[in-house]
Design a protein around this nucleic acid. Structure first.
Length: 277
DNA sequence: TTGTGTTTTATTGCCTCC
DNA sequence: GGAGGCAATAAAACACAA
């Protein structure tokens, strides 16, 4: 238990309720003044506040006995001591909220940076895949390896690309999951979209036409974004069919403008709170 | 000196707990 | 039902620029 003598350095305070009231120097005049202004608010002296602060550090709540003792030590009403502790708790809480806010804000900034970096890496990898695929197709075309829709590139166009995209999305999804509990429904939607890709069989060629499940629109967007219409038109039948056939795919789930499966720009605003900043 | 913003002390009303 | 806690608020005291 803190004692007022400790705080004052062993000297008991002889001042009363408000600052600047010193019995030693001013005597009866100020005493009269003090009692005449009893209706007004009086600030506690520096020593009194210091003592109360020390007591607050020890325990921020007041038991009745402690309240009485502190009041007696300081020459205050127990009610005043209770009010001081009440207000002090309120100030402490405000400070604590400010600290919590700063801490959360730091976490948010860190997560946002991670997310942005992953997004950039994903875009870079997608561009790389598109570029390499284009080169392979051109090479096959040059070597005359096209035979009625069959191509050595078929395998390249299927599992490797889909797998890499799936893994990329998986990384992003784990961040969504960990950082945004308020959007569980969205996360589930995206997760199911992802499982569509993983569960879906790879695209198949039948009669020279690519058959694909809905999630294959990932593929189509890659080509649409990376090749001009002229380049597409110049492709030989099987590849041309990839585009024409995929254009018929039902896009009702992932709306137009989506940059990747089920993760269109619009969704970023609802899925990621920081999109609004 | 004065106007203005901030801090401190105190009140009020509501809620919870025993 | 009384005591004590909290949030919201009032009002006095204080700090400070102009």
């Amino acid at each position: 238990m803190v004692s007022f003598e400790d705080v004052q350095g062993g000297k008991r305070c002889n001042r009363s309720f408000f600052t600047g009231f010193d019995l030693d120097e001013n005597g009866d005049d100020e005493m009269d003044e003090y009692f005449h202004q009893s209706e007004k608010k009086r600030r506690l002296s520096v020593d009194q506040v210091q003592f109360l602060e020390k007591s607050f550090e020890v325990e921020n709540k007041l038991e009745p006995d402690r309240k009485i003792k502190i009041a007696k030590d300081l020459g205050l009403q127990p009610r005043q001591v209770a009010i001081w502790f009440q207000n002090r708790r309120a100030r402490w809480k405000t400070k604590q909220l400010e600290k919590d806010y700063e801490s959360l804000n730091d976490s948010y900034e860190s997560l946002k940076t991670d997310y942005d970096n992953i997004l950039k890496e994903k875009e870079r990898l997608q561009a790389e895949v598109a570029s390499l695929t284009e080169k392979v197709i051109a090479k096959e075309k040059q070597e005359g390896k096209f035979k009625h829709g069959e191509s050595e590139t078929k395998e390249l166009l299927q599992k490797p690309l889909l797998n890499s995209v799936s893994e990329g999305e998986g990384s992003k999804l784990s961040i969504v999951d960990a950082s945004n509990n308020n959007n569980n429904n969205k996360v589930e939607d995206i997760s199911s979209a992802r499982s569509d890709i993983l569960d879906c069989d790879s695209p198949r060629y039948t009669d020279g036409v690519l058959e694909t499940c809905d999630s294959s629109y990932v593929f189509e967007h890659e080509y649409q974004s990376d090749l001009s219409q002229d380049e597409e038109d110049n492709l030989l039948p099987p590849y041309n069919n990839i585009f024409t056939k995929l254009e018929d795919v039902n896009y009702s789930d992932p709306p137009h403008g989506s940059s990747s499966f089920g993760f269109q720009e619009e969704d970023h605003h609802t899925l990621w709170p920081w999109s609004n900043y």
